[in-house]
Computed example of a mutant assay.
Amino acid sequence: MKIDATLGGLADAAARARAFEDAGYDAAWAGEVNQDPFLPLAVAAEVTDRIAVGTSIAVALARSPMSLAYTADDLQRHSQGRLLLGLGSQVKAHVVRRFSMPWDRPAARMREFVLAMRAIWSSWHDGTPLDFRGEFYRHTLMPPDFVPPHHDFGPPRVLLAGVGDLMTRVAGEVADGFLCHGYTSARWIRERTLPALREGRRRAGATMDGFEVAGTPFIVTGGDEEIEAAIPAVRARIAFYASTPAYRDLFELHGWGAASEELTALSKAGRWKDMGALISDEMVDAFAIVCGPDDLPARVAERFGGILTRISFVPPAGLGREAAADLVERLRS
Rank of each mutant, 00 (worst) to 15 (best):
Y25L: 12
Y25W: 11
D26N: 15
A28T: 01
A28V: 12
E32K: 11
V33T: 07
V33R: 14
V33K: 13
Q35R: 10
D36S: 15
F38Q: 09
F38S: 04
F38Y: 14
L41Y: 07
A42W: 13
V43M: 03
A44S: 04
A44T: 01
A45G: 02
A45Y: 00
A45K: 00
E46F: 08
V47C: 14
V47A: 07
V47Q: 15
I51S: 00
I51R: 00
A52E: 03
G54F: 10
S56P: 00
A58I: 13
V59Y: 02
V59S: 01
A60V: 08
A60C: 05
A60Q: 06
L61M: 04
R63E: 08
S64N: 08
P65T: 11
S67K: 12
Y70S: 10
T71I: 15
T71P: 05
A72G: 07
A72V: 09
A72K: 05
D73C: 12
D74E: 06
Q76D: 06
R77A: 13
H78A: 03
H78K: 11
S79E: 03
R82C: 00
L85A: 11
L87W: 10
L87A: 12
L87D: 11
G88H: 08
G88E: 10
G88C: 12
S89E: 04
S89V: 11
Q90H: 05
K92E: 13
A93F: 11
A93K: 12
V95W: 05
V95T: 10
R97L: 05
R97F: 07
F99G: 03
S100C: 05
S100W: 04
M101D: 07
P102F: 12
W103Q: 06
D104P: 00
